[in-house]
């Protein structure tokens, strides 16, 4: 998780200087890949790390001779890399807004929403039950971390708080959802507004608290094959496999909801 965040930062700086957009960031390869195979490159939001890695494995076993390479990162950073010409086949974003950057640039068309993610309050596993509702986050004694408003989970958190009519003064606005979660995992913060999938992935260390206002800020995850995909056939296949019943089941297990 750490290394991914470093990779993310590297990638952003890379995008800024408009050089060498490809190959940076963490690239994970499916096991059992053979040499001289076709490779489909998938740029996916960081929150998809666990579920997509599993999906990739299934995809490879169903497509002999095909390999899936992932580049997980912040959706906006990935979108910028794609706009700068990174050689990607598929883009799976954590928000329609970031997907829109790519479609507006003509790099993708007809994205489809394949999953939805809902916010949860993450609290340290050992914490006594001082936080049981969204309203508890307004307690000045509770150290709350949110995502920065610039990133999707931050925007979603603001939306949920707004619909509940609450004002929360966070101690920090973290650069991504995993960073926010880390602060709770290390017990430096008492609560964080993160995605349910993140809570599930860190089940050993944090506990999730559901709140009804989360329904007002559900995040749609769109996916699209890219227009300049080096492997257009495999790209389409991969998108279809994510939308397939088996793909949906894997996502559901990770805590995603169906669109």
């Amino acid at each position: 998780m750490r290394s991914r965040r470093t990779g993310l930062r590297t990638a952003s700086i890379t995008a800024l200087t408009a050089a060498l957009a490809a190959g940076c960031g963490d690239v994970k390869e499916g096991p059992g890949a053979k040499a001289a195979t076709r490779t489909v490159v998938v740029f996916a939001a960081a929150s998809l790390t666990e579920s997509f890695t599993a999906l990739g494995r299934t995809f490879e076993s169903g497509h002999p001779g095909a390999r899936v390479k992932f580049n997980f990162g912040g959706s906006s950073a990935l979108a910028q890399q794609i706009d700068q010409g990174a050689p990607a086949d598929v883009f799976a974003a954590a928000s329609p807004a970031t997907m829109k950057q790519v479609t507006d640039a003509g790099r993708a068309s007809t994205p489809r929403v394949f999953a939805r993610n809902r916010l949860e309050i993450a609290v340290p596993k050992s914490a006594s039950a001082t936080v049981t509702s969204l309203n508890d986050l307004t307690n000045p004694k509770v150290k709350v971390v949110l995502c920065a408003p610039q990133v999707p989970c931050g925007a979603a958190a603001l939306k949920a708080l707004k619909s509940a009519g609450l004002t929360v003064r966070p101690v920090s606005q973290e650069q991504d959802v995993k960073a926010a979660l880390t602060k709770v995992r290390l017990n430096e913060a008492d609560a964080a507004l993160v995605y349910r999938t993140d809570v599930k992935a860190a089940a050993g260390q944090v506990r999730g608290v559901d709140f009804p206002e989360a329904a007002q800020a559900v995040n749609d995850y769109p996916i699209a094959a890219l227009t300049k995909a080096p492997q257009p056939g495999l790209a389409g296949d991969f998108v279809r496999s994510v939308l397939s019943p088996q793909g949906r089941a894997t996502l559901r297990q990770a805590g995603f909801e169906q669109p």
Partner: peptide, 8 residues
């Protein structure tokens, strides 16, 4: 860094 997210 955060400005990079949505306003390069």
């Amino acid at each position: 860094y955060l400005a990079l997210e949505n306003d390069p």
